[in-house]
């Protein structure tokens, strides 16, 4: 059952009894890890956005490169 099917079901109608087991689910740790990666991605994205916005302001000073005069 797709997510769309799941969200368009009419649960108030009598449903046929479920034959056998439900569809197998991914291990909980797998789903939990994906959610955590999503949160971490959000964290990095927000840090990046904040840094980029700040770096566009006129007085922005990049961090000096250690041990060299010029980067890149």
């Amino acid at each position: 059952m797709t997510l769309l099917d799941a969200l368009t079901a009419k649960p108030w109608l009598p449903q046929p009894p479920h034959p056998g087991r439900d569809a197998p689910r991914a291990p909980a740790a797998n789903v939990g890890l994906r959610m955590l990666l999503g949160v971490i991605a959000m964290l990095f994205a927000l840090f990046a956005v904040a840094l980029l916005v700040r770096a566009r302001l006129p007085d922005w000073q990049a961090l000096p490169c250690p041990g060299r005069r010029r980067c890149g």
Partner: peptide
Amino acid sequence: TTVLQARTHGMTLL
């Protein structure tokens, strides 16, 4: 994760 993965038999999202 509990809501997504640990619902009992017959407990669909809706």
